[in-house]
Design a protein around this nucleic acid. Sequence first.
RNA 1: GCCGAAGUAACUCAGUGGUAGAGUAGCUCUUUCGUAAAGAGCAAGUCGUGGGUUCAAGUCCCACCUUCGGCUCCA
Length: 586
Amino acid sequence: MENKEQLDRIRHSCAHLLAAAVLDLYPGAHNAIGPAIENGFYQDFDLGDKKITEEDLPRIEEKMREILKTWDSFQINEVSVEQARKDFAHNPYKLELIEAFAKEGKSITETKQGGFLDLCKGGHVHHPKNDSKHFRLLSLAGAYWKGDVHNKMLTRVYGTAFKTKQELDDYLRMVEETKKRDHKKLGRELELFLFDETAPGMAYWLPNGLIVYNTLYDYAREQYKNFGYQEVATPMINKKELYETSGHWEHYRSDMFISPMSFLTNESDDPLQGSEVFGVKPMNCPNAMRIFAFKTRSYHTLPLRFAETSSLHRFELSGTLNGLFRIRQFRQDDAHIFITQDQIEEEFSHTMKMVAKMYEPFDLSYRLRLGTRPEKFMGETKDWEHAEKMLKNALDASGIEYVTAEGEGAFYGPKVDILMKDSLGREWQTGTIQLDFQQPKRFKLEYIEKDGSAKNPTVIHRAIYGSFERFLGILIEHYAGKFPLWLAPVQLALLPIADRHVEYAKKLYQDFSKEGIRVTLQDSQSTLQAKIREATLQKVPYMGIIGDKEITDEVISIRSREGEDLGKLSLSQFLQKLKEDIDKKA
RNA sequence: GCCGAAGUAACUCAGUGGUAGAGUAGCUCUUUCGUAAAGAGCAAGUCGUGGGUUCAAGUCCCACCUUCGGCUCCA
């Protein structure tokens, strides 16, 4: 933690340095704020009618190095409001901050180094000249003043800094490595999926990608059986009344629903004027409620677990789309579990066990985040308290690390989010488990209790992968495209050395295919080296080389994508090894 | 949506107003090869789309589409 604080000091100092350099190079520019952030620092600028482009960054960096020579120390002085107003009379952003601090009764401090004066609360290195010299400017972005869309868009310059040159270089190398693993790049190279301008924000799944997708789905289905789920499918397009009942139409109409449409009727060109207005479903819950309502339900049948993986569509803003990570059409390994109030803790534990099982094959570590009652919430405080207590009990019992995020629950109930850490140490939110008392009531759902009375069930909404799309995107980057055998689109590439080996290779191809192995036969007119290269670039886990020796001895020479020679194995020996590894999901 | 950048052959990219290019992939032929790229040839482009300026536009201007980096981190 001490390290983190020191790093923040280094970076915060660099943010000042960046401000000094830009103000020097762009007279009339104003700097706004410039904090240290998770991976570096930034500084926001109002450049008037001037612009900074990526090409200017080296020049700014050079200026920073020049100015840094004159920065021996940071001097922090507390000043009066009047003095601060005078010092920053030219800078409307600093003035706004000064007025805000004056109102709050905070003391106002200024920092001065070299000839540069800034408004600052402190937190710098002692000797910038020596301590803050390993920095690099990285990128530019627009950002609103105070993060508010109604305010002016400022130019944000991002950079990073480290204590040593070694650490800086390591970080920059890691950034390069991340770029190489980019799932959008690998998605093309490995022919997994494509994005096309005919359908912005929606993936076309290519044969290889769909194999991985369906393999993830198959695994989820296997677990449905083990954990007592039943799979259902419900309509994609529903009358808006369904979403009015659930509350989604009112809460999310503009940001969730792809344009409402008039369906089955042709009364008007304006879909909202037709008497029958429909929406493309952005979530499955309302339909799940209708399935529960299908017949009279008894307490005997609870928990009742319905899994559904229908396609969902959400209107994500164009600028937020990002490959498979943020997408407009996706499927979730979604489920709705109907329970009694008394079953919350037990069912939550049951769900946590399923989470553990589902994540087991991916060698990903994860932690949990409990979101409690938000400021704006629906329902009774006592129900919330009961539910939160049940969740906490179950979390404690699970033994998995978790943090509590106060006020971060959904408006209809508390929730637990699953945060997954990938091989580069990046954290992603994937699954979520949410309690809901509201929708069952809005849909007037009831089950018959032991004593014959009718009661509202409670619902657990949960998705474990989250969306298949996002989860797969994470896996692609986690594995750098080298899927484990059970997920690999092609598990074995057969490489005959010369034409006379093709016939035998074809027979092997048939044998492996019959046994359910995903195998390809590379029988083009190229050298063995070229075939190996091709299969390695496609990240096929195993290559089976077939030449004269192999045919004589009825074996296959096995090479891994890592270049390892696994020796000569007979068909049955190798098949057994493959099947074992696939079963183990190794 | 907003700020910034990009879009040229299937892919990666070069091309600053005057005849659209390279490498890779593809196809054809030759080669039949032992653990990461054999050789030769051929074919392949509405230069994202639509307007405009100009004798002349991939290149300059305008609008739109798509993609990417950001828009949460608070002196």
